[in-house]
Structure formats: structure tokens, C-alpha cells
Simulated scan of single mutants.
Amino acid sequence: MTAALALLGYALLVGVLAPLPLARARWTHRAPRLAVALWQGLTLSFVTALVLAAHHLAVPGVHLHLGLAGLMHLCGVDHPGGLLATGPGQAWRLLLPAAAAAWPLGRYAAVLVRTARHRRRHRTLLDLVAARDPRLGAHVLDHDTPAAYCLPGRRARIVLTRGALDLLTPQQLAAVLAHERAHVAGRHHLARTAADALAAAFPFLPLARLAARETPLLLEMAADDRAVRRHPRTVLAAAMYRVAGGPVPQSAFAAGGTAALLRVRRLLAPAAAPHPALRAAAALTAAAAPVLPLLFTCGPVVP
């Protein structure tokens, strides 16, 4: 019971208190990829703590113990008194930890399937109404409104409207294409799906709500950063301004979008990168957070 209470307290800390300073931090817009990794690390840490708490509630007698041995012994599962020793008649004890793990994983799978279905339908429609331009590596829609977006996934599509082609200069067009390719190459849709799934599984949890709000913007900024490696910031900013108002499917990544003004300001007035010590601390936290519940609460059963 002590271990379960400790894990629930840790989950409360990660799910309620830790996201608040991260959402208000100023450095995240200067290192968006690192910030996304930190949001994902907190998410995995919360889910791990929740599942382990359920395990300790289902199997009394696994005491709080500090050590790496818990990693090797599945947090008491293969110890005397663990789940494997309960016998066929006690298999019901598996239900609580299994449900704690299945709920967020099931929501992730559901969101992944739903968004994949939407993208598949949109790809089918694009193949019918859009013309592929091999030179651009994109599909062109015959529409006057300037817009640019990508449908990520295994069969990714980069989409431009005829209005965008008429409005953008060659340099601006190249910058927009680089931005959209960055989304595809970085598999940004997986991080966005994880954030959306956590929000669907725990809609009232601050971690879930804030991660779902911050992750899409951070991914757009990460794509901007990759695009400006080869293209001037002013060129990408001007292109974003010109396509900001174009319609975009819900499951797509857009070069413009509602946060375009914030991103344009960020491009035109770039801030210094976070201090190396801060970057190191954030990276260490992102890597360590998922295993902290194991390191601090799992170990051999104390007789």
C-alpha cells in the first residue's frame, strides 16, 4: 500500500504540478524539439506511475524499495507473492494493472486509427482532384485561396493550391516545401497523436490538456527551424504570412495556421538558444522521467 500511495503521489505531481511551469517557460519556443521530448517524457512517466500503482494495489506486499533490481524483476511480478505466484484462481488481480495500461494505449490506438482513416480518405480525394507535380514533389489543387499543408504518414502528401503557386515567389515556395518536408521526415504526426490521445484518455488532467495545446505549435516551430537551415528566415516568414489564411484539414500540418503570427515574430526576431546547462537538464529530465517510477518504487519484495 505504501508503494501504491507513493506512486499515486508521484503521478499527481507529474500530471498536475509539473506541466504548469513547463507551459509557462520561455525557453521552449527556443528549443521546440527538446520541449516536445520533455512533454512526451512526462506523459510516459505519468502513465508508467499509474500502471505501477495499479500493480501494487493488486498485489499487496511489494514494498517501496530503491534500486535497479526492480527493473530486472518486473517490479515484483516474478517474486514470491507477485502476480505469477497468485495461481489461476487469482488471475483477476491482473485486471487492474491491465486496465490501467490498456486505457491510454487504447486511446492512442483509437486516435491513430481515426486520424489515419481521415488522411486516407483525403489522400484518395487528392488523387482524384489534384495534379501531382514531380518537379515540386507535391500535389497541386486548382483553388484560388493560397494554402500549403502536408498529410503525414506512410503515404505522405504535400499539397499546394494554385493560389499559393501564383502568390509565392520561387524562394518562398522552396521554403514552404522545406517546412512541410520537415514534418514528414520528423514523423511529427506521432508526437501529435500521443498528445491528442492523452487528452482523450484524461481530459481533465493538466498534463494532458497542456500537452495537447503546446505540442502542435512546438512541432510547427521545429519544422520552421529545419526549413531555415537552408532558407532565409525572412523568406519563410513572408511565405507563412501569405498562406496563413488557407483552409487546412484537421489531421494535416500547415505552413500557415492560426499561430502563424507568433511564428513569424519568432522567425524575424530570433532569440538566443537556451543555455547549454538548461538544455542538458531538460534532455536528462526527458530521458529519465519515464523510468523514474521504476527506479524509485520497484524492487525486490522485502520479506
Rank of each mutant, 00 (worst) to 15 (best):
A283W: 01
L160H: 09
H189R: 09
V184H: 03
A49L: 06
R120V: 02
A101V: 06
P249I: 05
L95A: 15
R187C: 08
A260T: 11
L141W: 02
L160N: 11
R229F: 02
A37K: 01
L68P: 04
L190R: 14
A200K: 01
S45G: 14
H143V: 13
R242W: 01
A11G: 11
L261F: 00
P276H: 07
A281Q: 01
L96F: 02
T258K: 09
A212P: 05
G256A: 05
D225F: 00
F253V: 09
H63L: 10
R266I: 07
R263Q: 05
G246R: 07
D142H: 12
P232G: 08
A227R: 04
A91R: 14
P206V: 00
P80S: 13
A288H: 03
C150T: 15
T161I: 04
P152H: 00
A54E: 10
G186D: 13
D166R: 15
L295G: 07
L13G: 14
L105T: 07
W39T: 14
L42N: 03
V302Y: 07
P206N: 10
P290W: 02
M221Q: 08
T28D: 06
P152T: 06
L22G: 08
H118W: 10
C75H: 11
L284H: 01
R119Q: 11
P21D: 08
T43A: 14
F46I: 06
P274V: 02
L68I: 14
G257F: 02
M240F: 01
A23T: 07
A11Y: 00
V62P: 00
L294C: 10
D196F: 01
A259L: 02
R162S: 15
W39K: 11
R93M: 12
R181G: 05
L5G: 13
R119E: 14
A91P: 03
P32A: 10
L168W: 01
D224V: 03
V248Y: 06
V62I: 12
L207W: 04
T161M: 04
L295K: 07
A109N: 03
P290N: 06
L128N: 10
R279P: 04
A49G: 15
L71K: 03
A31H: 03
L68Q: 10
R117S: 12
R135T: 14
L12A: 15
A148K: 00
A259K: 03
A252N: 09
A201H: 05
R120H: 15
L20Y: 00
L284W: 05
P88Y: 05
R279A: 06
L205S: 15
V248G: 12
A4E: 13
W103S: 08
G61W: 00
V176Q: 08
A156R: 01
P300K: 05
H79W: 06
P19S: 11
V59L: 12
L57H: 08
V291H: 02
R121L: 13
Y108N: 12
A269W: 03
Y10F: 15
T193E: 13
L84I: 13
A148S: 13
A286K: 09
R135F: 04
R114Q: 14
L105D: 04
R242S: 07
H139P: 02
G137W: 00
P104R: 07
H118L: 14
P247W: 05
L160D: 04
G87D: 11
A197Y: 03
A164S: 10
Y108I: 06
L8V: 07
I158M: 10
E220S: 10
A271D: 14
V14P: 02
L52C: 08
D224K: 09
T2H: 02
L207P: 08
V140I: 11
